[in-house]
């Protein structure tokens, strides 16, 4: 095994040469382009700054996008909800729109870090960390959200499953690109959602397991039209339990089907063991429990509880 100097020595500084405060997105993108990958986008800074201090991230410049116009709002356009790239966790939690139409995201954002972290940290930043257990990634993944990414080449829209690339990498290269917005369909009638989190303590800690689920039911037939189940960290990136979802689609609401979904999610999860955050075996067992609990709660909220 080889070890780096930074594994045993720490500094109190973040070692960047320039701090840039662009006024427009175009200006920001140009600044990034000029630095040719040696500059990093920073918004709330809650993820980037600690990484710089620990030398887990080394760049020459920071491009602070937090004052770019038009990216701090939460809006509804038709049945779509649009979350600006600069919306903080605290704003998300406080938004009536999100609480009513995407409760699972509000529940997830409420569990990020601490009040101070939620005041600065953004949902887009949480996504961009690529962390397989990020608290808002799972809700957005279950909501089938898509991300708009701006670069000097223009804008593109990436659906979340493709956004996450594993190993804390995402489709948005935060040394060249900016996430300008996140959009997803508002939840409506006959839809229900649930966010669950397992952790060693109740604040200031990453989760052992995070689950977000969204279900769409036919209340008359008592069947599940559609279901989305996102779990982390059970794979190198935020994970959709597709096998479990397939079992649920079109199936009648029943205890048995929920159990089967849990078992399927158990089988398709491949968590890693960690001496601090628990064994793979335990996390897999918890996947089963969480999928079951998440579905019960989401189905109840959708108006179609398991009898």
């Amino acid at each position: 095994m080889s070890y780096a100097f930074k594994d045993f020595h720490w500094a109190n500084d973040i070692r960047v040469n320039e701090y840039l405060l662009p006024k427009t997105t175009a200006e920001a993108l140009e600044m990034l382009a000029e630095y040719k990958g040696q500059a990093q986008v920073v918004s709330g800074g809650t993820d980037v700054i600690p990484k710089l201090r620990k030398r887990e991230l080394e760049v020459e410049a920071l491009v602070d996008i937090s004052r770019l116009p038009g990216m701090s709002d939460i809006k509804q356009k038709g049945d779509k909800i649009i979350l600006g790239g600069l919306v903080t966790h605290a704003r998300t939690v406080a938004s009536l729109l999100i609480r009513e139409k995407a409760g699972v995201l509000a529940e997830g954002a409420a569990r990020v870090g601490s009040p101070q972290i939620r005041n600065m940290g953004t949902v887009a930043g949480n996504l961009a960390s690529g962390h397989p257990a990020a608290d808002t990634s799972m809700p957005l993944l279950a909501l089938n959200a898509s991300v708009t990414i701006a670069s000097t080449e223009g804008e593109r829209v990436v659906d979340l499953p493709q956004f996450f690339q594993g190993g804390n990498q995402t489709a948005a290269d935060s040394r060249r690109e900016i996430i300008t917005q996140i959009s997803f369909s508002a939840l409506g009638k006959n839809q229900g959602c649930c966010y669950l989190r397992l952790s060693k303590r109740r604040a200031l800690t990453i989760a052992i397991l995070v689950l977000a689920t969204v279900v769409d039911v036919d209340p008359d037939e008592k069947t599940i039209r559609d279901a989305a189940i996102a779990i982390g960290p059970v794979a190198p990136m935020p994970f959709r339990a597709r096998d479990a979802e397939e079992i649920l689609k079109g199936a009648p609401v029943s205890k048995e089907i929920v159990e089967r979904a849990g078992d399927a999610a158990y089988k398709e999860s491949t968590p890693e063991s960690s001496v601090v955050w628990g064994s793979d075996e335990y996390k897999k067992e918890m996947v089963k429990v969480f999928v079951r609990r998440g579905l019960y709660k989401a189905l109840k909220r959708a108006g179609c509880p398991v009898a």
């Binding site: 060693k200 109740r202 604040a203 200031l204 960690s274 001496v275 601090v276």
Partner: peptide, 21 residues
């Protein structure tokens, strides 16, 4: 500790109780 290497050096992974615990 794994083979002499501490795996939780910071206060984000060495977990003392918070006000909610």
């Amino acid at each position: 500790i794994e083979n002499g290497y501490i795996q939780n050096l910071s206060l984000r992974d060495y977990l003392i109780p918070t006000s909610l615990d």
